[in-house]
Each structure stands twice: as structure tokens, then as C-alpha cells.
């Protein structure tokens, strides 16, 4: 392990030498002292939920590129699994995770209430759009990504005209056996989406969904890949992933439901027992910074900063096309809804 790490870092250092000099000259002067403090820690472990593992790995590499000498261990999973692993760490008295980015704010709130988070007010916290600021007035966590859940469909199987226009359209019998959804017991995105669906259309919505004989993925991203493959024709999935898939050449398109996309804002937090606390703080700054925004916007994400423009195809957020859940709804609702979902769908 040691030897390999050594080889890796040597190789990385050699490759990145000119870049590093370049990056350093551009580095925010405010950040420089934090980098100096973080550098000796050498690495950081990031439990991340709201992006696919390829994007997450690229984000990690971008960080190492900007701050040479600090490696990022990317651990991507669904919200529930990430939280479960984190709690296993905590129960076991093992400190693994430095920064958690989760799509379920309830998890961050829960950790905060158990006094497991490190309070940190990032220097860049004011740089985000106002809508994404101040999720936690006590500065234990901060919104670092936002992503919409919308309707995705396979363009080979479904024409734009045929495609569902709103959430209840998914209940049309013509989608029976051709519909994919995620599992709120695993996915944070799907959890919040399910809470809002229940609020808007009652549990009846899910009873009818069951009759559609849906494919149930664990991750919301599975909805996109399964639909892109043609295994299902339509689904409720993360629009960012769908656009990435479409760009790769898959027959994939998104629809902004007329009753609104469900916006999931994902907070990031630093664990109190983080083994690399300074690197974690630096990483938090990085998550709020412009570089990652540029990188992820290129991957069709919805930026949380005003100084980067979303790519074409990414639906702008307006007053009347979004559905948002309140923090209270998420904290109180997701686990209850997930349990109901398990009873209804038997899994």
C-alpha cells in the first residue's frame, strides 16, 4: 500500500509539476494558507452521493490538480448506503470520512444533532447564489450541488410528442412494463421526489405506479442507464445524468414536467473526527469554488454559482418550473415515505 501510494504520488508530482506552478499562481490568495496547512495531510476521503462515479472521480482529480499533493479517495454511493457506511464507521469508532456530500439533508441534520460535524464557515460561502446559501444557519453544512429530477425517456422508443409531460403522465397504461423509477430507501433524490409526489398526488400515485410494473433501480442514476439501454422507455430520473448520457450518444432526452422538476440540493459537511481536517476545509472551499462549478457545469450540472453559465439543454430554474422540498419535509418525510414505499412495492 505504502509503496504504491509513493509511486502514485511521485508519478503525479512529476506529471503535474508545470501545472502545479501554474495553478499556484492562480490560487486564491485567501486559500493559500489553508492549502499549506492541508498539504501535509496528503489525502482526503470524500463520501459523495449526488453525482455519478465517473464525474466524482474527475472532481477528485481536479482537486488534486489544483492542490497538488492531496489525493482524493472518492467513495460514491446512494444516500442511504453512504449514510449507513458512515454510521458503521462511527459505531465502529473508525474515522474514515472527511467530507460527506449527500443528497438527503436529513442525514446532515442528523449528524449535526448528534454532534458529529465540524463547524466550518467557508471563506467562499457567500459566493453561492442566494437561494443556496444558509442551509444551516450554524455553518455545520453547506449546499454544494443542486440537481433536478425530471422525466427521462429513450428517444429511440418514444417520440417527443408521445413522451410524458407531467408526473401523472407516468401512470398512463402505455408505459406499463416500460417505466423505471428509483428506490427511496436507497436514493436521496428519489426519497425527496417521492415525498413531493405523495404531497402533490397522494399515496394513490404510488399504488397506481405499482400497477405499472415498474423497474426499480437502487440509484436514481440507474433509471437513466436502464432507460438509455432501452430496457425501459421512460422514467423519473436525475436530468444531469440523462444529459451526460445523451452527450455520449445514447438515445436519451429529458422533459421538464409541467408540474415542475423536483430540485434536490445536496449539502456537504466535514466530520468532527475527520482524519484530515485541514484538507477537508480546503475541499469544502473547493466544492463551493468556481473550478468545480466549471467542471461540473460541463457535465450538465445546475450551477450553484452565478458566475458560471449552465450548458445548453440544462433547464434554467425558474419560479414556476421547480418543486422544492423544505428541510423539515425532508427530515420528517423521507424515511417514512421510504418505509411506505417498501410496504407497497414489497422490496
Amino acid at each position: 500500500m505504502k509503496r504504491r501510494t509513493f509511486l502514485m504520488t511521485t508519478a503525479a508530482a512529476a506529471a503535474l509539476l508545470p501545472l502545479a506552478a501554474n495553478a499556484a499562481s492562480h490560487m486564491d490568495e485567501k486559500i493559500a494558507p489553508l492549502y499549506e496547512a492541508a498539504k501535509p495531510e496528503g489525502e482526503i476521503t470524500w463520501y459523495v452521493v449526488p453525482m455519478d462515479s465517473e464525474t466524482a472521480e474527475r472532481v477528485g482529480q481536479k482537486f488534486t490538480e489544483l492542490y497538488p499533493g492531496i489525493k482524493v479517495n472518492v467513495v460514491r454511493s446512494t444516500a442511504t448506503v453512504a449514510f449507513q457506511k458512515l454510521n458503521q464507521d462511527i459505531d465502529s469508532g473508525v474515522a474514515n470520512c472527511d467530507v460527506l456530500t449527500t443528497s438527503n439533508v436529513a442525514h446532515a441534520e442528523d449528524l449535526k444533532s448528534r454532534d458529529l460535524l465540524l463547524k466550518y464557515a467557508p471563506m467562499r460561502k457567500g459566493e453561492a447564489l442566494a437561494a443556496f446559501q444558509g442551509a444551516d444557519p450554524d455553518d455545520f453544512y453547506h449546499i454544494t450541488t443542486a440537481g433536478p429530477m425530471g422525466i427521462v425517456y429513450n428517444t429511440d422508443l418514444v417520440s417527443e410528442a408521445e413522451a410524458p409531460k407531467n408526473w401523472p403522465d407516468l401512470l398512463d397504461p402505455k408505459w406499463k412494463g416500460k417505466l423505471a423509477i428509483g428506490h427511496p430507501g436507497f436514493s436521496g433524490y428519489v426519497g425527496i421526489w417521492a415525498v413531493k409526489m405523495e404531497e402533490l398526488y397522494g399515496w394513490d400515485y404510488f399504488d397506481k405506479l405499482l400497477e405499472q410494473d415498474p423497474y426499480i433501480g437502487r440509484s436514481s442514476i440507474d433509471v437513466v442507464t436502464t432507460t438509455a439501454a432501452g430496457e425501459t422507455a421512460v422514467g423519473a430520473g436525475p436530468m444531469t445524468s440523462a444529459l451526460i448520457s445523451a452527450e455520449k450518444g445514447n438515445p436519451m432526452a429529458t422533459i421538464v414536467p409541467t408540474d415542475g422538476m423536483v430540485i434536490i440540493t445536496s449539502p456537504s459537511c466535514i466530520l468532527k473526527n475527520a482524519p484530515h481536517p485541514e484538507a477537508a476545509k480546503l475541499f469544502m472551499e473547493f466544492l463551493l469554488g468556481k473550478e468545480i462549478a466549471e467542471l461540473t457545469v460541463d457535465q450538465f450540472s445546475t450551477p450553484i454559482r452565478g458566475d458560471v453559465t449552465p450548458r445548453e439543454g440544462v433547464a434554467p430554474l425558474t419560479e414556476d418550473n421547480v418543486i422544492t422540498a423544505t428541510k423539515e419535509q425532508i427530515i420528517d418525510g423521507v424515511s417514512v415515505t421510504a418505509e411506505k414505499f417498501r410496504d407497497t412495492f414489497g422490496i
Binding site: D52, S53, R76, T78, S219, I221, T225
Partner: peptide
Amino acid sequence: LDLSEQGEY
């Protein structure tokens, strides 16, 4: 198993 969540076969 972890990666199969996303269906990237």
C-alpha cells in the same frame, strides 16, 4: 455491487 447501483454495465 456498489457500482451496479448506477447501472453502468
